[in-house]
């Protein structure tokens, strides 16, 4: 993304009043969709949704945004709002999929293999990644979501909005999870 487009997107995400001049609502929604697409897919994968379903939910999420902006609803904390809508739609879809398990064969996002050629280094890296993944997987959903949304670059107020918890809860959840990860790193 060019730096101009980046500035536009961040002004949309941090804006509190009306839309950007010269942009239609469709344009705004499309810009934000492009910007947050990958993050939302990763977040939905962490909720256990297969990739094909996740794309569909991201689309639905932005159709909700389209309606939200068309009705001139509040624009503060749009990023938090988008993750919150995605989370609600994702959970509904995941519940549906659990009722028809044939569809739910896809593996949620797993950790990628490291691109190094040194087998020893790779093995060590893979061990550490696997270890890390295990600890993260074992976290309660809310703690895992906090950690992942933090890694996706969301501010605490955005994470709080997305998960419907207080800002203090975000901070203590992150501290608790990082405490567990710290123990892993030392061992």
């Amino acid at each position: 993304m060019s730096s101009d487009a980046w500035q536009l997107v961040s002004s949309l995400l941090n804006r509190t009043s009306s839309g950007a001049p010269g942009l239609t609502i469709e344009d705004e929604v499309t810009l934000l969709y492009r910007e947050l697409h990958a993050s939302l897919l990763r977040y939905l994968a962490s909720l256990g949704l297969p990739a094909a379903e996740a794309e569909d939910i991201v689309q639905e999420t932005f159709l909700h945004l389209f309606e939200h902006l068309r009705r001139q609803k509040p624009r503060h904390n749009l990023r938090g709002w988008l993750f919150r809508v995605a989370r609600n739609l994702g959970r509904k879809r995941a519940a549906l999929l659990r009722r028809s398990p044939i569809d739910a064969v896809d593996d949620p996002a797993s950790l990628r293999c490291h691109s190094t050629t040194d087998p020893e280094e790779m093995a060590a890296w893979n061990r550490r990644q696997a270890h890390l993944a295990n600890v993260v997987q074992a976290l309660p959903e809310r703690d895992r979501s906090c950690l992942l949304l933090r890694a996706e670059g969301l501010r605490y107020r955005e994470i709080a909005e997305a998960l419907d918890i207080s800002l203090g809860t975000v901070a203590s959840s992150l501290a608790r999870s990082l405490g567990k990860l710290d123990t892993v790193n030392r061992s």
Binding site: Y33, A51, E55, R112, Q129, A133, L147, L148
Partner: peptide, 28 residues
């Protein structure tokens, strides 16, 4: 301890990120 745990986690997270499928903006 918290600072370094966070840095380790963020590094590991960055490394584990796989390329996402392209957005389907035309469909949206």
């Amino acid at each position: 301890a918290l600072t370094s745990a966070l840095r380790h986690f963020l590094d590991g997270y960055q490394d584990s990120v796989t390329p996402s499928p392209p957005p389907e903006a035309a469909l949206l």
